[in-house]
Design a protein around this nucleic acid. Structure first.
Length: 880
DNA sequence: CGATCCCGCCACATT
DNA sequence: AATGTGGCGGGATCG
């Protein structure tokens, strides 16, 4: 019957269900999917239904909406009659498909074709792995079920697992929001951390002796048991446990089981987990009594979960042959390390402590977004932005959901780091007294939300968005450089205007952290306000702008204000933050505006784009003056430019800068940054440092995170892709505008991240220079070879003497720019970057080097820096 | 025959 | 009460 139906269905509605394409599924590696987002899938195969399937695919690809309409559930079901299809549409499609078609039905769909794994692949094929931040994809369960030709129940199985990994989040009844993999690494990292707590010992235990499980079981259980308590940890993602209300039965299972299962892999040294062990462990937690039936049921569920995870490319089926025989098992083939480490030296930073709850208000500018919705919601809720929030049963409005907490933790860690860095910096820099303040900022950040992610969108205007940009550093730098460096610097010093630049950061990728310290003292305050202004703008921007968003993929960005938030921040800022919308904030100097509010509507989650734009705008404007010079030289990205123009404008000039940067990209200059690339794509962090500030070098502890001195920003990005940006502010004292050589030396950074490995690149820029200390990579993780590689490439960029100082830099992937300074430097342009350079960068981590150019202060300087940087460069190539 | 796991009943949750 | 969710396990397939 099924077959028929399909065929019949097909005619009517192409869409329909379909069993469809399995063919492809197999072929495809799950992993691939991520890569190619949308795609249809498909390879034609001869399947009976294929035709239909293909149609569907096509259709879906073409326009989901259409499909939906057409299909309608009801239609589907009933429809069976018509047999073939003859609808014109179908015909068309058919033609395409034909090849395969053949017979039609023929085979029945074997059980395999109906498997959950396949279904999941089909499901995943419908959505991009890394959706643009701007787009927010909502998933209607009914729709999907009908499209895929399955009962809704099956979709729940898939969605529940995806939700446990935060690839989707429930928005409302029957509706889920697709987030894609942007936050996947972050989620995995969180799970890993939680897993170590819960299962660390246990796994070790098992691993050592698998056989003995049982007995271990008994023993270990104890440990585990406690875990159960923690559930929250696990749940973090979800549930809310919090409070909630509830936990209803449900919460219990599939989602949690999925998270726990993933944790087992992450905690496992071998990365291989056998079903029986997993079942035992999981059962245990739940209950002690293990009866056989229960075990059997658990295993069944694990298969369900495993099928979804397999489709995601996170695990693969393997067999473990033990003495007893071969046992079914699964091997983790997803990312293993995540940048953010747990280990950071957490130190003292008070800030971190603060994070947790406190501040949120203060911090305003920075936010985090995480999965979009959730976080968003929260914030939004204030605004009213998100309607749904409540929908989920559990959703809690509470302040923190477990998930958030987790994130917060993460944030706090980051913050701590930042704080440390700052301190160091400060220490180093004596010159400026003010310095300290920066620290304070950090905390702020923390509390705010940390952003992690979520929304991918580019919310943050701050930086720009494109990824490319990131890579672009060169471009950026270049931009800066060109233009009037000197002038800028001056301004900077003197002015506060510049200030802005210092402080914040932006990141695009999903989660990012930024640390910044701004050095400047004075400025900070000023900056703050600016930031606020920025924020507002962003908000505004959001409303207006959409376009930008597309470009960037990164979703989250955060900006921190380096400045101390504290002081007064403009109310506006806070507001903005609260608004939530976005997390981002940027700093922009510029005028403050009114804050828009976040408009976030629930629906549109994606405001980010807008923000970005705003961002740009802002940047532009500030930059303008300086920019003008710069601009003259280059054109901006069109988009950005446009935006800018639109928005604000005045600054057109600024735009110029950006352009320059892009153009420059090619050029070799770029001085001040280091770029570190992360190894593969996994998670990684990116850092950018600006050199300016710290004259001193920074050293980080090697192993751990280190400290970075300087203003740094660290961003972990989950997805590599993204790119982080960073800005540095410059710092220096107000004066020294040109640090010249002296400065250059200043910063040194070592990174080592332990875990990192990641992928992400880091940039460090300083005006000053960085000291080359870097070699961190190796140190980092010895364990894994892979990771270890961090590459730092310093980019030298051009020397630009001018550059130097402060400057904020920014990059983001897509968009990025920060503007920090207005006066001084300009940051870069984001977009511009991307193109050419971008490629280069991205391609190989090591290779990158991009030069980033920027200018920084006016100054000059830099040259030295460049030389230094070169040295620094570690692995990657540097462009020069 | 054991490994997989589809299918869908039905309880509980939410509307 | 209707509808959404999703636990659960019988039993069909696969290998």
């Amino acid at each position: 019957e099924n077959i028929f139906d399909r065929s019949r269905m097909a005619p009517k509605t192409p869409i329909k269900n379909e069993p469809v394409d399995l063919s492809k599924q197999k072929g495809c590696t799950p992993e691939r999917n991520p890569i190619t987002p949308v795609k249809l899938i498909d390879r034609p195969q001869p399947d009976p239904w294929t035709p239909t399937a293909n149609l569907k695919m096509l259709i879906s690809a073409a326009s989901p909406d259409m499909r939906d309409r057409e299909k309608k559930k009801e239609l589907f079901r009933p429809i069976e009659n018509s047999e073939q299809s003859d609808t014109p549409d179908s015909l068309q499609y058919d033609m395409v498909d034909d090849c395969t078609v053949d017979e039609f039905e023929k085979q029945r769909p074997s059980r395999k074709q109906k498997s959950l794994g396949l279904l999941c692949q089909k499901f995943l094929a419908r959505y991009p792995s890394y959706p643009l931040s701007t787009e927010k994809t909502t998933i209607s369960l009914d729709e999907v079920a009908s499209i895929l030709g399955v009962e809704r129940r099956r979709i729940y199985d898939i969605v529940n697992v995806l939700e446990s990994l935060h690839l989707v989040s429930r928005v409302a009844k029957n509706q889920y929001c697709w987030h894609g993999r942007h936050n996947l690494n972050q989620t995995l990292k969180t799970l890993q951390e939680a897993g170590e707590l819960q299962y660390g010992e246990l796994m070790t235990f098992f691993q050592h002796k698998e056989q003995d499980l049982e007995y271990k079981f008994g023993e270990r259980k104890k440990e585990t048991i406690p875990d159960s308590q923690d559930r929250p940890l696990l749940d973090f993602s979800e549930p809310d446990c919090t409070s909630a209300s509830a936990n209803s039965r449900k919460d219990k299972s599939l989602r949690i089981m999925s998270q726990k299962f993933v944790m087992l892999f992450l905690v496992s040294k071998t990365k291989i987990v056998t079903l029986d062990i997993a079942a035992k462990i999981l059962i245990e937690e739940t209950q002690d009594t293990v009866d056989h039936s229960k075990f059997k049921t658990k295993v069944r569920r694990l298969y369900d979960i495993a099928n979804v995870l397999t489709s995601l490319g996170l695990i693969k089926k393997v067999h473990v042959t033990e003495e007893r025989g071969r046992k079914p098992a699964f091997k983790w083939i997803g990312p293993v390390e995540f940048p953010g480490n747990t280990d950071e030296p957490r130190g003292r930073s008070p800030t971190s402590d603060a994070l947790p709850g406190t501040q949120r208000g203060a911090c305003a500018p920075y936010q985090i977004c995480s999965t979009g919705k959730q976080r968003f919601t929260r914030h939004a809720s204030f605004n009213g932005a998100q309607p749904y929030e409540g929908t989920r049963r559990k959703v809690s409005s509470e302040p923190n959901s477990p998930r958030q907490e987790r994130q917060d933790e993460y944030c706090s860690k980051m913050i701590n780091l930042a704080a440390v860095c700052r301190q160091k910096i400060e220490e180093n820099n004596t010159r400026n007294p003010s310095i300290t303040s920066p620290l304070s900022l950090l905390p702020v950040l923390g509390d705010s939300d940390f952003c992690v992610n979520s929304l991918p969108q580019a919310v943050f205007p701050v930086v720009q968005a494109d990824v490319p940009s990131l890579s672009l550093p060169n471009g950026v730098s270049s931009q800066a450089l060109y233009p009037s460096v000197p002038a800028v610097s001056k301004t900077e010093n003197g002015k506060p205007t510049l200030l802005p630049s210092q402080p914040f950061l932006c990141f695009p990728s999903s989660s990012l952290f930024m640390l910044c310290g701004s050095l400047q003292e004075n400025n900070l305050r000023e900056t703050l306000p600016t930031m606020g202004g920025v924020g507002n703008r962003s908000a505004e921007a959001q409303a207006t702008v959409p376009p930008a968003a597309c470009q960037k993929r990164s979703s989250h960005k955060c900006v921190l204000p380096s400045a101390p938030v504290d002081d007064e921040e403009p109310a506006a800022k806070k507001q903005t933050m609260e608004q939530s919308d976005v997390p981002l904030s940027l700093v922009v100097p510029k005028k403050p505006f009114e804050s828009p509010k976040a408009e976030s509507t629930p629906g549109s989650g994606c405001t980010s784009a807008e923000h970005l734009e705003d961002f740009h705008l802002d940047l532009a404007s500030p930059a303008a003056p300086e920019a003008a010079d710069k601009e003259s030289s280059k054109p901006l990205d069109s988009q950005e430019q446009e935006k800018r123009s639109q928005n604000k404008d005045p600054d057109e000039p600024s735009a110029g800068k950006e352009h320059i940067s892009k153009e420059n990209a090619n050029q070799p200059f770029l001085p001040q940054y280091l770029y570190v690339q992360p190894a593969a794509g996994l998670s990684s962090f990116n850092f950018l440092f600006s050199a300016n500030q710290a004259p001193g070098a920074i050293s980080l502890a090697a192993s751990q995170l280190p400290a970075v001195s300087v203003p740094c920003v660290v961003v972990p990005s989950t997805a590599l892709a993204s790119f982080p940006l960073i800005c540095s502010p410059t710092i220096t004292s107000p004066l020294s505008p040109v640090p010249d050589g002296s400065f250059s030396a200043a910063a040194c950074v070592n990174f080592s991240m332990s875990g990192l490995a990641s992928t992400t690149p880091v940039f460090i820029g300083t005006t000053a220079v960085v000291t080359p200390k870097v070699s961190p990579a190796p140190s980092v993780d010895p364990q894994q070879p892979a990771h270890p590689t961090l590459h730092l490439s310093p980019v030298l960029a051009r020397s630009c003497g001018a550059v130097k100082l402060d400057s904020p830099m920014c990059m983001g992937h897509p968009v990025t720019l920060l503007k920090l300074q207005q006066p001084s430097s300009t940051p870069l342009t984001p977009k511009s970057i991307r193109p050419a350079r971008h490629e280069a960068f991205f391609k190989t981590p090591g290779s990158l080097g991009d030069p980033v150019a920027w200018k920084k202060n006016e100054g000059n300087q830099t040259r030295n820096g460049s030389s230094v940087q070169r040295r620094l460069e570690i692995s990657s190539t540097s462009p020069d």
